[in-house]
Amino acid sequence: MDAILLQILNGLDKGGAYALIALGLTLVFGTLGVVNFAHGALFMLGAFCSVTFQKLLTISKQVKDTSITFFDAYKEMPYLEIWFGDYGKTIIDWSVPLSILFAIPVMLLIGLAMERGLIRHFYKRTHAEQILVTFGLAIVLQEIIKLSFGANPIPTPAPEIFSGTAPIGALFGLGESVVYPWWRLIYLGFAFSVIGSVFAFLNLTTFGMVVRAGMMDRETVGLLGINVERRFTIVFGLAAVVTGLAGVMYSPILPPDYHMGMDFLVLSFVVVVVGGMGSLGGAVAAGFLLGILQSFASMNEIKSIIPGIDQIIIYLVAVFIILVRPRGLFGREGVMED
């Protein structure tokens, strides 16, 4: 029972990341019809917003390091600590949650620049061309990050107060030995709240209503005198923010490196295909579903029956779905079925 609870939680927090990335991907595909292979790079850029913000907060004064005597070495004392003492330390400690405030405008700008500067020129091109250009863009972005931050992962710890584990076993009557990392639980809560906010925005605002209408029938909305294109550009920015925030909050779980976007990109596409191309609800549901499936497939008991199943489970599911229901679990009839 302990193991099942832990795998469910593990699947949910993993699924939270998949769902957030897939949500952004679906927003872009649903509105603009673009297959954006640079979407994983947005996740990576979000994580590096957290790294950048941490670096900004720890801008330091170089002080001679007297512990090294063989050559002239210097150690760094953050100005925030010099100026504000313990308050400065606390601000640095909370750099990841605070970097959300930094990441929202940055990711919005990146999203808008990406859409206006490059992607809009490919709206009328084939999906193959879109894939090529966005994949190229992803490589360029990751090389820029590698040049700026190096190839090694950069630790971005969660605030000290969340570094421990929560005794979740006690909640389910399983004893206090069943624990789960606080930050992963926070991530899960964060994923639910962002997903909820996006759905609320699309369902409860006029802007959202126009976007949804545009997703259903772009031409008719345009005939009504509404500038759909501008709204879709904003949606692209919104998708970049959602994906970027997923990256920011994931940075304490997976120390960011330039390649992390690619690792999530393929999985996210599988999630979108399983959920149904263009279906927001499908992307979220498939994200969590595949996260949980992958987590259970990693259990030693399962792997002892089917070795290596953890590596292929989500692809098996994708193949099965494509064969029996090409439009995905929640996809609209006619989309991706021909």
Partner: peptide
């Protein structure tokens, strides 16, 4: 107790770590 092979560049190892907790 157990030897578990993990793919190179797995990224998130949580699915391999959770079984350790109860092993």
């Amino acid at each position: 107790v157990k030897t578990v092979r993990t793919p190179l560049g797995a990224g998130d190892f949580s699915q391999y770590i959770t079984p350790v907790l109860n092993s």
